[in-house]
């Protein structure tokens, strides 16, 4: 099989063209780097405490600050309307499809992971990369309090 274009969507290209068509002439400058930091996993998954980070919010009113909330019972709904996702092709009524707390709890029961952290974290999505990194530090501190040793980040 052959084709003349790549299969995977480039969201950088799509959003640049989309906002240009809306009359925004200066394209957004996305974060870029050539190397990544790395902390090896020094103990097995079955002994690790997994903490989840989502970009969804507990309510539309609380979408502007990072937060932590109990992992269990998992919320049965989250606020996502303010985020950019494919609202024409899918839906977010199934929380497990983007915030897998119940799934992780089941994997802990099965011994695949050590445990699910007692709290999950949420981080707002903003254009400012400086604010994002500042909020990431709040989450680092919360996860350190909870002895999280593997963070699972799940963007919408």
């Amino acid at each position: 099989m052959t084709k003349a274009h790549r299969t995977f969507v480039s969201y950088i290209d799509k959003s640049r063209d989309f906002y240009a068509a809306q009359g925004y002439d200066a394209p957004y400058r996305w974060a870029t780097a050539s190397t990544a930091p790395f902390t090896p996993l020094s103990k097995p998954l079955s002994e690790r405490r997994v903490g989840v980070i989502t970009t969804s919010s507990l309510s539309s009113d609380s979408a502007l600050e990072p937060y932590v909330a109990p992992s269990l019972p998992a919320p049965d709904a989250m606020a996502t309307d303010h985020l950019s996702w494919h609202k024409g092709a899918t839906h977010t009524n199934d929380v497990g499809s983007f915030l897998p707390l119940d799934h992780l709890n089941a994997l802990a029961d099965d011994g695949v992971i050590g445990s699910l952290a007692p709290r999950f974290a949420g981080i707002p999505t903003v254009y400012s990369q400086r604010r994002t990194t500042k909020w990431a530090e709040h989450i680092r501190a919360w996860f350190a309090e909870d002895d999280v040793d593997l963070a699972l980040l799940v963007p919408l």
Binding site: Y11, W30, A31, A33, A36, P37, I53, T55, L83, S84, W85, I123, P124, T125, V126, Y127, Q129, T132, T133, W135, A136, E137, I139, R140, A151, L153, V154, P155, L156
Partner: peptide, 12 residues
Amino acid sequence: MCHQTVGLTARH
């Protein structure tokens, strides 16, 4: 923007 947000958070 969600993916950039978690990318920066993961790096931190």
